[in-house]
Design a protein around this nucleic acid. Sequence first.
DNA 1: CGAAAATTTGACATGACTCAACTGGAGTGG
DNA 2: CCACTCCAGTTGAGTCATGTCAAATTTTCG
Lengths: 190, 190
Amino acid sequence: MNASEIFKGAGLSEQELDHIRANFKEVAYPKGGVILDMGDTVKYQYYVQSGCLRAFFIDKKGREHTLQFAVKDWWISDYTAYFTGGTAIMSIECIQDAVLYRTSRTSMESLFQEIPRLETFFRRKLERAFASFQKRILSNLANSAQERYLAFLKDYPQVEKYVKNYHIASYLGVTTETLSRVRNEIAKSF
Amino acid sequence: MNASEIFKGAGLSEQELDHIRANFKEVAYPKGGVILDMGDTVKYQYYVQSGCLRAFFIDKKGREHTLQFAVKDWWISDYTAYFTGGTAIMSIECIQDAVLYRTSRTSMESLFQEIPRLETFFRRKLERAFASFQKRILSNLANSAQERYLAFLKDYPQVEKYVKNYHIASYLGVTTETLSRVRNEIAKSF
DNA sequence: CGAAAATTTGACATGACTCAACTGGAGTGG
DNA sequence: CCACTCCAGTTGAGTCATGTCAAATTTTCG
């Protein structure tokens, strides 16, 4: 595991990186593999070294809603459960074969106490993630399905390569049929 | 300003609280007052001592979308701009006369370096806020207008007291007419 | 009280959903 | 190399939830 890559910019010493490294474990999953299932206790969060995953929620009508995708250098978990200690309301699956580095909440909390710069590094990551989720809420409230789809393509070109249209539809909050029609409209307008 | 109340549970000494206190400024705004306007540079975040505020976004069709309400003991800002250093895409206004304690990004960053426990305290706050925004995205994707309204009443009874229905509508992502019909339906079902 | 603001109601329009059928690959195995 | 199947995506027809616009009603507050 290449910790100096993961924590690039955090200003950590080699010794600190070694200590951090000891708290991560490399795990590999095949395409279709399930990292986390609804109802599970959520001990870990995952850094994506390679591959593509998605976190999704299944509602009472059986519809899937994708909360997040993750590709190289992203972090993923059911953070509601991970942070608060509850059980997962989401599942996480691999869309492509994946290599992940996982770490537990308790490991991270001790590391934060020992290495304040690591806590700063993660706080900043969390701030950016928080801001991007706020933007997504506003985008969902303000924009049409077509606008949201175009914004998705623009913001996440690395993700678009790996995922099926029905995954994108469930992220945007529309059905596959609607997304298909949206794509048709866009194609016609050229 | 009562810092021991704001940072209750952070495990800070009196001396630390005094130091923190020096980085906050009490400000009062009347009902209708604008704390922050779209386009402004966002230097501050605000702790709500009393009153009620809302952060909202105006889209290109002129419709308002409420991202967040804030009542006593909540924090508010345009966090996307506050964290990333850009200009505000939102405005924040007082729904009720408000007393706020404001602090700047730069103050907080130095305080975090001086008092790691303060950074831990804010990181945990941010984690909870992050989790609740994730839940809101899922709720918007999975639930009907009526379900979202009922969930709002249940989750934020303190907010509901202060705000107009059209504020709630703009938070839920429906028109005032739709919210009115939803309320009518709910009333009929009793 | 009276004006302005907020909410409700009605009639109609529309974007997105549902369900069902169909199309077009991408494998797989004979 | 073809027939078969599976899966993703598309298309069509009808329905439904919510939006739009206009008007009526109720509430708020100076």
